[in-house]
Each structure stands twice: as structure tokens, then as C-alpha cells.
């Protein structure tokens, strides 16, 4: 490097804005015909941004941005984004710093007591009656996340489902699943229930099994809805067997409800 120490010091002062107005003007004149000095300034500016713990060096434009951008707009990236968002929301909601949880546990505990009472005094309900107690489907999470306006197929499917038009919902879910790279657990859940409502039991069981085997955080819901399917089929043994799997892990979906239902079925 052939820049003198003096010139480098001036450049450093220039970069940190320590030069007087006149000295700054003089330095900028020097910059006009000294490429080496220009390079020095540019490297040092960048070093300053990268090595300072507060600054950041922004990229303005680059052909490479486009390649990265097109991946970020792909279906694969969108599916990943949706999965991360889902886990994020779940994690944040369940994190222990959220004080509301304590009260919701109390509420759950209270409703458990209530439900146990309910079943004790309602002896000998038939399988179908039991099924009717649980098939409101209001607990299903919405498929449409905020800000995601692109997926009209899913919106149509959910809409038909809510309006209990299961034939129509079935068509939309089918179309969605066939065109998707990965299918979220919640979509499988809806699709299984659509089969259940249409009395296509084998298809319902297959779909719930698919959900159970998936890597979705909701996979244990598959056991619950599979058990409901068996109830509707009036197959008590299979329903009990499925619920037994569910209650083997307290973190499974509807753990307490499953226990109550089991007691009831064993009567």
C-alpha cells in the first residue's frame, strides 16, 4: 500500500466525519483523481459497517438477488414459511411466560370435572349418541392465515365445510391436495372429517392415519378423529383401541376427553 500514513489518517478522519468544512473540501478534491484513495475509502467504509457492532452494510442491487428472490417466491419456500409461522404461533402461545395459561388450565380442569359428571349421570349412551356429542367440528383451526390471500382453493374448501356442504368441500380439498407440494396436517384433518361426514369410512381412516404418521404438530389429533370415526361406525372395540393409544401420552390432543370417553365406552 503506497498511501502515506498521513493521507490514511486524513481518510479515516474523513470517514468518521472529523474533518473541518475546509479540510473536507480539500480532501474531496484529492479524491477526484486518486483511485487508490477512492478504493481505500470504499474498503474502509465497508470494514466499518461489518466490524462495528451497530452498523449494517446494505446491498443495493445485484443480479444475484433475483435468483434468491425467485426461490423465496416458490411454493416450497411458501410451504416452509407457513410451517415456521404455525410453529411460531403455537410456541409463543404455549410458552410459560404467558400468564393466561394458568387460568386456561383451571378452565380445562373445571370442564373436565363437569364432563365427568355429565357422563356419570348419562348412563348407557349409544355409540352414535356419543359421536353426536363430539362432532361439532368447531374446534378446528381456520385454514386461512392472515395476509395469505393467494390460496382461493383452500378458502373455498373451508367455506363449503363451514356451510356443511361436504360434497363441495371434498372437491376443493381434493383439488388442493393434488396441486400441493406438501399438505399441512390441518388440511388432512379437514379432508378426513369430510370423508367421515360423507360416510366414506375407509377413506376417513386412511386420511387420519396419514395425519398420525405425518410430522405435523397436530398428528395426535388423528387418533381422536379416528376414534370418532369408529364410534360412528359403531365399532366399539376399535374405538377403545384407538383411544387407548391416545391416552398413552398426556401431551396428546384431547387427552382428558379421551379418558372420559373410554370410561363411558367400557360401561
Amino acid at each position: 500500500m503506497s498511501l502515506s500514513e498521513n493521507l490514511q489518517n486524513q481518510a479515516d478522519d474523513y470517514l468518521t466525519d472529523k474533518l473541518s468544512v475546509d479540510a473536507k473540501k480539500a480532501f474531496e478534491l484529492l479524491l477526484q483523481d486518486n483511485q487508490e484513495l477512492v478504493d481505500y475509502i470504499s474498503v474502509n467504509k465497508e470494514m466499518q459497517a461489518h466490524y462495528n457492532e451497530e452498523d449494517w452494510s446494505f446491498a443495493d442491487k445485484d443480479a444475484e438477488v433475483e435468483g434468491l428472490e425467485s426461490y423465496l417466491k416458490s411454493d416450497d419456500a411458501k410451504a416452509l414459511k407457513a410451517s415456521i409461522k404455525k410453529v411460531n404461533d403455537r410456541f409463543v402461545k404455549e410458552s410459560p411466560s404467558n400468564k393466561k395459561n394458568y387460568f386456561s388450565y383451571l378452565a380445562i380442569a373445571a370442564s373436565v370435572v363437569f364432563l365427568i359428571g355429565y357422563f356419570v349421570f348419562n348412563d348407557s349412551a349409544s355409540n352414535l349418541e356419543l359421536y353426536e356429542n363430539y362432532n361439532s367440528w368447531q374446534e378446528l383451526p381456520s385454514l386461512i392465515s392472515r395476509g395469505d390471500v393467494e390460496d382461493t382453493t383452500l378458502a373455498e374448501a373451508e367455506n363449503a365445510f363451514v356451510n356443511k356442504n361436504y360434497e363441495k368441500a371434498h372437491l376443493f380439498f381434493d383439488a388442493y391436495i393434488q396441486n400441493s407440494y406438501t399438505v399441512a396436517g390441518t388440511v388432512l384433518l379437514y379432508q378426513g372429517i369430510v370423508f367421515l361426514e360423507l360416510n366414506e369410512y375407509n377413506n376417513a381412516l386412511t386420511t387420519f392415519n396419514e395425519l398420525i404418521e405425518s410430522n405435523s404438530l397436530d398428528n395426535s389429533k388423528g387418533y381422536w378423529y379416528k376414534a370418532l370415526t369408529y364410534l360412528k361406525m359403531d365399532d366399539t372395540d376399535a374405538a377403545i383401541a384407538t383411544l387407548n393409544v391416545l391416552v398413552s401420552d398426556t401431551s396428546n390432543y384431547n387427552y382428558s376427553k379421551a379418558q372420559e370417553l373410554l370410561e363411558k365406552l367400557r360401561d
Binding site: 452494510s57 446491498a59 438477488v65 423465496l72
Partner: peptide, 9 residues
Amino acid sequence: RELASSILE
């Protein structure tokens, strides 16, 4: 685009 730029940075 923002995220793509942040990757290069």
C-alpha cells in the same frame, strides 16, 4: 426482495 438482499449482505 428484502430477504434476498439480506442474504447477500
